[in-house]
Design a binder for these strands. Structure first.
Length: 995
RNA sequence: GCCGGAGUGGCGGAAUUGGCAGACGCGCCGGAUUCAAAAUCCGGUUGGGGUAAUUCCCAGUGUGGGUUCGAGUCCCACCUUCGGCACCA
């Protein structure tokens, strides 16, 4: 019986595509192509658990778009590769003693097999893995480019789009060296350069995770101070690390976001992450002299500043703060510096020394968790020193508190308790003065945040006010609205040389080194002195010596100390003597997993190039990416990092576009099948639970899930089941709050106390609701899996899996099959109903409607509706006899991007010898879409009263008279006055009447 | 708290962007086919009411207002929910 046999068909066509190299894209594409499409999937980390049903969701979407584009005659680049460096392979290796390379290769081949079984039209000849030395050779090369680049913030240039821009990455050799640095000698120059490179070393405190044995980026640490991977505790520790100066590109990354065709939500996420704020930096003079001379010192300082202007780096006698509210300067009644601020020691007076030291120590051991969790209680300690408020010469105390972060702004703030909630809390705790300088607008009530902080002062309830208003207690500025005041005072203070307009970003530099074995080695040597100690000078590995491969090692376990595994590599890898006789030691940190994924899309264009990471001509040919689809979990990190690398490579002239991803779409997460869970009462006979039902305790009710319930609604292993409304599948949940306890028994208060919980949850091993794509392919075929994942709902939406939904699309494919194939025949032959006859007008119309709808929907990535249109077509044509070939053939082509295997099989059956991959996409004829007469609604006072047939293209008058002639309408209008008639041609008629 | 989404039948979701709410699929009900089943096919399925019957009536897109001849769609306020950030001065 020639039933729809997905397994046979799919095997056949996958073999055909492989043999014929159907999807291999030459680098010299046909000249007659009508445009190009680069459709990219976020390449997977080949984990040990294999493909997840979430992967094929985005992959199917790009595959449909790619296959559609090929049929439209475009040249298409569509590739797959592996983000194969990373922690899990290394941890598995440590546990089992298998080399990570072995595990990785095994996992890759599983992924490859699974992906191939789904019939994606990837050009497998371009497959790449980030762990391949021929690949990471260029990752290392790009790192050297970063090392060789500084950011010239003042450089003006015009982008490819003709827009003027400021700021560009330039070769380090072009960095202007100040004369005093040149005079100080070669080492000073080198040091100066190192301070400007985009890749630099730093000793700043980092997130050290002892359990993972590595340092983590801020982005890899959760809010409660745990590692994102594994949820292990993370502590702060000062270590020498490589950093990438992504902050230099903050403005560029923010600015270029505007023109990209990305979902607003993702743009918002990135904007949020970059976190731009504008305000001013203000210098507060810190007098050192004994009282008496202090005022004179301040005045002298003020005068000198007026002359010199606002310096780039403040001196020792100045505390520089950043504020977004310079208009509240008159209300600054104290200052706060972070416990890690470099001035802590200098500002601490002998009397306060003990208290300060204790506080700073305590703050240093506090994890981020403690710091945020104790947010309710503000803590701090007085330094003993004061600073002078530049607007009024008032001396204010300087405190140390951990609510000020050393890593943001200048690590110091001016505190305006009247207008900042945190400062208010602190001032209240330590009894510091509160001076209001902003008058709230009339009728302002304290907000939800402000209200709870209210406090009685001098017999009156007072609240902080963080909003905008009018200036008071601000000398000459009184009466100015906040916004105006900000601009004015910033200008005035800038003229006085004590402040400057400033911008700050939440974004931090990217911690780029890890203490792992399974990552790209840094292409860097450290110079050693005669004793073998590092001199602090580094030398790049010569390009000709790339790649720096990983040494073969027996033991790459982390030692629980920050010494990276590579520092235990064999000496011949680790050490070398340079031609000039200098002893060198390799950098033993490795790059983070993000490195390889920052540029893989470039390599796909030119994967075999041994001369360059990409050929400039080929790059121009394929980039930018027209469609990039992947999970929202990469909305910030991966996408920001790769944009950053791409910007730098663009600035250095290696790329033709600054932004790699023209259009980005995040597929929604696929949740596990919605489970009905709850308490079921096991008793004989099925019946409804009712109000008043009694149970002796919740033990009478068993926790069940839909898996325990058979299709007819009986609970397996029990005699019956309590149902909500008599529906067969069901279990109920008791909401303890709605169940009354009477003695030892519980009584259902009312029907609402019986709840069915049918939530869908994330797929997870522990929940046991993970769907394995292999199983689905085995039972229903790849086409069904592809079609189902596209039919579930909008691509970007989170949606639950449903096995019966898979069966639904499988049934649809069966109907398609039987539309062509006589399933009662002995062999696979065309159904006799498929004939070379002229289609009827109605058949032509549905065909052309379907062609239009499917094409438009693919362009909109609205695959669920495209599929529903094809179902409508099948519902209409399936039962007809004869079924004209001229209508069925184009339909096969429409189906091809979605269910390519079945489509190829039917195409073949219709007598075509070649694959339909490059068959022209059907076109529709606008004139075939119109019907002779159409049905339109007639409303009276906006209510639908009748439907009438009108000739297509009827004018207003005709439509109105036809509507008036309708019996029902006439009855509705009888005895009433028509005030107005609205006629929308081809749409509707509406009579507005008065009684 | 701030930023960004989303609320439509029993369920997943449609709705030419202001013009017939519920396309398509799932589930369910009824029927055909069958010795029976599987598979397949046909009909019904928002709720309520009415009729011998129909192209019948009423209500209805989270809640409350508003704009409009007309609102799921636009405006205002609110509720719920999901995601991200969270002492960022």
């Amino acid at each position: 019986m020639p039933r729809y046999d997905a397994a046979r068909i799919e095997k056949r066509w996958q073999e055909y595509w492989e043999e014929h190299g159907t999807f291999v894209t030459p680098n010299e594409p046909p000249a007659d192509a009508t445009g190009k499409l680069y459709a990219l999937d976020m390449f997977p980390y080949p984990s040990g658990s294999g493909l997840h049903v979430g992967h094929p969701e985005g992959y199917t979407a790009t595959d449909i778009v790619s296959r559609h584009a090929r049929m439209l005659g475009k040249r298409v680049l569509h590739c797959m590769g592996w983000d194969s460096f990373g922690l899990p392979a290394e941890q598995y290796a440590i546990e089992t003693g298998t080399h990570p390379r072995v595990t990785t290769e095994k996992n890759i081949s599983t992924f490859r097999r699974q992906l191939k079984s789904l019939g994606f039209s990837y050009d497998w000849s371009r497959e790449l893995a980030t762990t391949d030395p021929e690949y990471f050779r260029w990752t290392q090369w790009i790192f050297l480019q970063l090392w060789d680049t500084w950011y010239d913030a003042t450089h003006e240039w015009t982008g490819p789009d003709g827009r003027q821009r400021t700021g560009k990455g330039r070769p380090i050799a072009e960095l202007p060296i100040p004369d005093d640095v040149t005079a100080a000698g070669e080492d000073a120059v080198r040091h100066y350069q190192d301070e400007h490179r985009l890749a630099y070393q730093s000793n700043a405190p980092v997130n050290w995770c002892p359990a993972l044995g590595t340092v983590l980026a801020n982005e890899e640490v959760t809010a409660d101070g745990k590692s994102e991977r594994g949820n292990h505790p993370v502590e702060r520790r000062a270590l020498r690390q490589w950093m990438l100066r992504i902050t230099a590109y903050a403005e560029r990354l923010l600015d270029e976001l505007e023109d990209l065709d990305w979902a607003e939500s993702i743009k918002a996420l990135q904007r949020n992450w970059i976190g731009k704020s504008t305000g001013a930096e203000v210098d507060f003079y810190v007098p050192r002299a004994e009282s008496g001379k202090r005022k004179a010192d301040f005045e002298q300082w003020e005068a000198s500043r007026k002359e010199s202007g606002f310096p780039a780096t403040p001196g020792d006698d100045v505390l520089r703060v950043y504020t977004t509210r310079p208009d509240t300067l008159h209300g600054a009644t104290y200052m706060v510096i972070a416990p890690e601020h470099p001035f802590v020691d200098r500002l601490t007076t002998p009397e306060q020394k003990e208290a300060v030291e204790a506080y700073v120590k305590q703050a240093s051991v506090k994890s981020d968790l403690d710091r945020t969790d104790l947010a309710k209680e503000k803590t701090g300690v007085f330094t003993g020193s004061h600073a002078v408020n530049p607007v009024n010469g008032v001396e204010v105390p300087i405190w140390i508190a951990d609510y000020v972060l050393v890593s943001y702004g200048t690590g110091a703030i001016m505190a305006v308790p009247a207008h900042d909630l945190r400062d208010w809390e602190f001032a209240v705790t330590f009894d510091l003065p509160i001076v209001p300088v902003v008058q709230p607008p009339d009728g302002h009530e304290p907000t939800k945040d402000e209200k709870p902080l209210g406090r009685e002062i001098d017999g009156e309830m007072r609240y902080p006010f963080a909003g905008h208003g009018t200036a008071v207690n601000s000398a000459d500025y009184d009466g100015l609205p906040t916004a105006e005041f900000k601009t004015k005072i910033t200008a005035d203070l800038a003229a006085a040389g004590v402040a400057n307009a400033a911008v700050n970003y939440r974004l931090r530099d990217w911690l780029f080194s890890r203490q792992r074995y399974w990552g790209e080695p840094f292409p860097v040597w450290h110079e050693l002195d005669d004793e073998g100690n590092p001199t602090g000078r580094v030398r790049p590995v010569d390009e000709s010596e790339l790649p720096v491969e990983l040494p073969e090692m027996e033991d790459f376990k982390p030692k629980g100390t920050p010494e990276p595994p590579l520092s235990f590599a064999p000496d011949d890898w680790l050490y070398r003597t340079a031609e000039d006789g200098t002893k060198l030691r390799r950098e033993t940190n490795s790059m983070p997993q993000w490195a390889g994924s920052c540029w893989y899309f470039l390599r796909f264009c030119d994967p075999k190039n041994t001369e360059a990471f990409i050929d400039p001509e080929i790059e121009k040919h394929w980039m930018p990416i027209d469609l990039y689809i992947g999970g929202a979990e990469h909305a910030v990190l991966h996408l920001l990092y790769s944009r950053f690398w791409n910007q730098v490579l663009f600035d250095r002239g290696h790329l033709s576009h600054a932004e790699p991803f023209r259009k980005l779409v995040n597929q929604g997460m696929i949740l596990g099948e919605a489970e009905l869970t709850g308490f079921a009462k096991a008793e004989s006979g099925k019946r409804k639970a009712e109000a008043g039902d009694v149970c002796s305790d919740f033990g009478d009710y068993e926790w069940v899930s839909s898996k325990d319930v058979t299709t007819d609604g009986a609970l397996e292993g029990a005699d019956g089941v309590v149902t909500k409304t008599g529906e067969p599948v069901v279990s109920v949940k008791l909401d303890p709050e709605l169940v009354e306890k009477k003695g030892e028994s519980f009584v259902f208060v009312d029907d609402s106390s019986i709840r069915v919980d049918s939530r869908a949850h994330k797929m997870s091993k522990s929940r046991g609701n993970v769907v394995n794509p292999d199983d689905v392919v085995r039972d229903y075929g790849a086409d069904s899996l592809r079609l189902y994942e596209m039919f579930m709902g909008p691509l970007e939406q989170t949606k639950p899996w449903s096995m019966s939904g898979v069966e639904g699309v499988y049934r649809f494919l069966g109907r398609v099959w039987r539309m062509f194939v006589d399933d009662r025949a002995e062999e696979v032959v065309l159904d006799p109903a498929v004939q070379d006859v002229d289609p009827t007008e109605a058949q032509e119309r549905i065909l052309h409607k379907t062609i239009k709808a499917v094409g438009d929907d693919i362009d909109k990535l609205s695959f669920n509706t495209a599929i529903s249109r094809m179902m409508e077509f099948t519902n209409e044509l399936g039962g007809q006899n004869p079924r004209p070939r001229a209508v069925l053939e184009p339909f096969v082509l429409l189906l091809a991007p979605f269910a390519p295997h079945l489509a190829e099989e039917l195409w073949h059956l219709l007598g075509h010898d070649e694959s339909l991959t490059f068959a022209p996409w059907p076109t529709y004829d606008e004139s075939k879409l119109v019907e002779a007469t159409i049905e339109i609604p007639v409303q009276v006072n906006g209510k639908l009263r009748a439907k009438i047939q009108v000739p297509n293209g009827a004018d207003k008058e005709t439509m109105q008279s036809l509507a008036e002639a309708d019996e029902t309408v006439a009855a509705q209008l009888a005895g009433k006055t028509v005030v107005k008639t609205i006629v929308v041609p081809g749409r509707m008629v509406n009579f507005v009447v008065k009684p």
